[in-house]
Design a protein around this nucleic acid. Structure first.
Lengths: 156, 156
DNA sequence: CCTCGGGGTTCCCTCAGGGAACTCGGCCTG
DNA sequence: CAGGCCGAGTTCCCTGAGGGAACCCCGAGG
């Protein structure tokens, strides 16, 4: 956990980090996404300490990105993505895209994504939701919005 | 910093986190993006400890996402995005989009993005780079790729 | 009644983050 | 040319989060 509380900042990036910014959180979310939904599975897959995994899962549940549900009459639980969480996975796909492009080893990307709609192995591409043309860092101006307050990140 | 070294994992998400996964790193990158390019500016804007800011900037420079360049004959430096870094900012835009949607307060989003191409205030939208239709968490199958090795995250 | 196995909880140790003070190296001013 | 300033770090101490391993709880099954 970041000692500093990011959630107080008037910045949507900081607020998102407040949910998945802690170490391991994105990887935990990734595991839940790909179907590793039980505590033991995630713990074994990531090699994360059980204590930290408990904290991260609770945090994700509190923020409503993951839901904890029993799957047995014994005290057994599995974790599943909520729709809020599924939208966070978009972030993971963009991360994966950057990692594939800039940090893959000679062998190639460790993971591929097949798009249901076209059946192709493909990658995400960022587009403007207005005009549909590409939208990247250099294609935008950053402006203060209605929820801005001066002090703390949020205003350029 | 995560104590565990994510860079060894066969997972592009983990590898990306190895670059910007530490606390503060995304916010530092954000500041550089919006034009807060000097040490003192970033430090004042974020309220981050000088020690940690030094570490984060060095880390970003080592990974080639940010470049440190002198801007005076005195020992003064500014940090600017490289093209590798600019592509990482895509990630920040997606983060901002999620934060705007799920965590904005009543006032509305703290920051707006105007797309140069169309001049509109808009948001990023994820599309398949093959067929151009929407590509989200639930629209893909995750498959092992050529760089996969069993053990550690990377294989579903 | 004992064991098993999932899902945590507890405890201790180390090391990273916060915060404030200190340093260094050139210009600038008197 | 002594002193001050200002940006850009560096150093130091203190606290608290992550790692790791052991322990616990609970219901099912033999």
């Amino acid at each position: 956990m970041q000692r500093t509380d990011f959630s107080a900042m008037a910045c949507s990036i900081a607020r998102t980090l407040d949910v998945i910014g802690e170490p391991w959180s994105p990887l935990v979310l990734r595991d839940v996404w790909v179907g590793l939904s039980r505590f033991e599975q995630i713990q074994a897959d990531l090699g994360i300490s059980r204590k930290v995994l408990t904290e991260r899962l609770n945090h994700l549940v509190e923020h409503g990105v993951v839901e904890r549900r029993p799957y047995d009459r014994r005290p057994r639980y599995e974790y599943v993505l909520t729709s809020k969480g599924a939208e966070l996975v978009d972030l993971l796909m963009v991360m994966a895209g950057w990692g594939d492009r800039w940090r893959a080893d000679e062998a190639g990307p460790p993971t591929l994504y097949r798009h249901h709609a076209c059946g192709e192995i493909s990658r995400v591409d960022l587009r403007c939701d207005h005009c549909g043309s590409p939208m990247h860092a250099t294609d935008v101006d950053v402006l203060p919005g209605p929820g801005a307050r001066r002090s703390s990140p949020g205003t350029g």
